[in-house]
Design a protein around this nucleic acid. Structure first.
Lengths: 334, 334
DNA sequence: GAATATAACGTAAACGTTTAACTGGAATTG
DNA sequence: CAATTCCAGTTAAACGTTTACGTTATATTC
């Protein structure tokens, strides 16, 4: 098998303690022994065993990341941000795909506990009480990214959804739109559903536009629901001039449905999305959207996580700023 | 800290060996002790420490996965397939984002070795000699997914790129096209570059269509290069009626560029893509493409990996079958 | 009823590290 | 020069498991 520290010690004619010390730069040895040891290490191609280290240090330099759906554009951008920073700090990340399923999530949490991860990043979902307790029991830090929890002590990284939604709608209003529909995410979704609806309401109110309940419909953030809900809108309230979709995927669904219906974007109908995934720039016409700095958010989450692990501090949440990326799906009304 | 097996033993008034035995269903204990032990486990909320287990078993139940770019649609679909199957078999996966950079890749391989992963899945890139040797030195299995290597003994999971490309082009030919351009990936890319070009050539030859070198241009698989290369084509060979792009992203770039140039798809120009990412179904008009079963490929890779780990067999490669998904970007010529 | 087998455990070594405690000798101090 | 400090190094315990081996007590066999 692979050489161990014992082999190195034997080869260099020193004790394993000495080898360990030069490995960890702890001092307490002469330059000559250091040379000898390093030589032996090189010759044997020795590399320390992180498992053995982990056992004694009670640190695995590993963090677990939970996503409802790893392969969504949204998640994978965050993941990249997390992984990149973590790797720079010599941490590994193990990914978990929960399917937003309670059973599965709990099983993952148990797995992560057994594997003794140093911390958990929880993404894009609601941190249920059950999860929170399980993590508490593990005695390791957790940070939320684009996620929510009832527990105010849990650090999070997110945008201000309500404000961002309000900005999006005000952007439309600024372009002269007044008949603005919204396709929200899940009706019960406390995370990205209700706050964005609140933002929509707020913007209308601010500009004295009365709210018409027929203008507000609910999808599930996914492409298909965007298509379907837009068709519904066109049937029930064809007079609208703009639609605000609570996700880019749904906004792209709107584009797709509009095309099928023979409507031109933005000439016949304006569309603004939400998220700022790469995809938004690839569609025709390029989608105007309010963008979350996903990769940056992943990075900050990673950063926060590692600080929690290494210093034991309890850190506050971070609100990152969104921005509106104006492309070609919103038209200025005369 | 968390309770250990020792705590359980004490509480149940048995030795740790006995606890270990009931934990692993090894027999050698009465039903009564089993009860006692399980009771103690429950009361303490005990969970085994996988790190300690790993140290003695020399198995961590962890596999490392290397991607050039985790957040691409392509990679993340594969990842999901890998993760899903692995999780079902009680393996965790740690992700590594290599940026296709040699230094970074080597650092990851070292890290994975230190962490004692049981195997490595290498995706979407060329397994350089240097990497291969590093993995050999670790004495663990490697499997390639949508990747290539000079070493024929390494199990792989991929489609037949040449055949798939040929099919794509023949599909266009079948629709009456004869002036067919191709936007390839990297010129030097032995993985998905040259084989697909070969397929293109083969299809032309099969149908006695002479090859015109101006019809073949090179991008880098990404969206922007699709835009740019299509513009080039329109300048140099505007007579073409169809273009075959070696990736969906590039094909979508073509759609985007065509839109800018005022060309209608498929009326003025037909487009077929390659990969079958989810995105292809969301664009306007929906992209016809040759599809790789990415998630399935991830699953098979995972499956192969775990079999290698657990049985020690050396398994053969797997060619999975592609399929053409006909949507709305290819028109039949009169 | 002695010999043997079996069931139900316990003991202790091992996995590859880190680290507190110890040791022997050289250098420094008063 | 004796006492002290310091340096360079060793020894051994510890981390939380698994597992080979040993040890009882009881059951079975002849």
């Amino acid at each position: 098998m692979n050489p161990t520290i014992k082999d190195v010690a034997k080869k260099a004619n020193v004790s394993i303690a000495t080898v360990s010390r030069v490995l960890n730069n702890l001092g307490g040895y002469s330059d000559k022994t250091k040379q000898k040891v390093n030589e032996a290490i090189r010759e044997l191609g020795y590399q320390p065993n992180a498992i053995a280290r982990g056992l004694i240090n009670k640190r695995t330099h590993t963090i677990g990341v939970l996503f409802p759906n790893v392969s969504s554009n949204f998640s994978s951008d965050i993941l990249q941000g997390i992984e990149d920073y973590a790797h720079g700090r010599n941490y590994s990340v193990v990914v978990c795909n929960t399917d937003d399923d309670g059973k599965r999530t709990m099983k993952y949490l148990q797995l992560l506990r057994e594997k003794q991860v140093d911390g958990i990043i929880f993404s894009s979902s609601l941190l249920k009480e059950e999860y929170y307790e399980a993590i508490q029991a593990m005695n390791i830090p957790v940070v939320l990214v684009s996620a929510a929890s009832n527990h105010t002590t849990v650090p999070y990284v997110k945008i201000d959804d309500c404000l961002a939604a309000c900005d999006a709608v005000e952007f439309l209003i600024g372009k002269g739109h007044r008949k603005i529909a919204m396709i929200s995410g899940g009706k019960e979704d406390l995370l990205s559903g209700t706050p964005r609806v609140d933002g929509y309401m707020r913007a209308l109110q601010k500009h004295q536009i009365p709210f018409d309940s027929r203008y507000l419909v609910y999808g599930d953030f996914r492409f298909e629901s965007g298509c379907i809900q837009f068709e519904t809108l066109m049937r029930t309230v064809p007079e609208i001039t703009a639609v605000f979709a609570a996700s880019d995927e749904m906004a792209i669904g709107v584009l797709s449905a509009a095309y099928k219906l023979g409507l031109r974007v933005p000439e016949d109908i304006s569309v603004i999305g939400f998220d700022g995934v790469q995809l938004a720039n690839m569609v025709v016409p390029p989608l105007t959207t309010v963008s979350q700095p996903l990769r940056e958010m992943g990075k900050i989450a990673s950063e926060t996580m590692i600080r929690c692990i290494e210093t034991g501090e309890t850190l506050p949440g971070t609100i990152v700023s969104h921005s509106i990326i104006e492309r070609q799906t919103v038209r200025t009304l005369a």
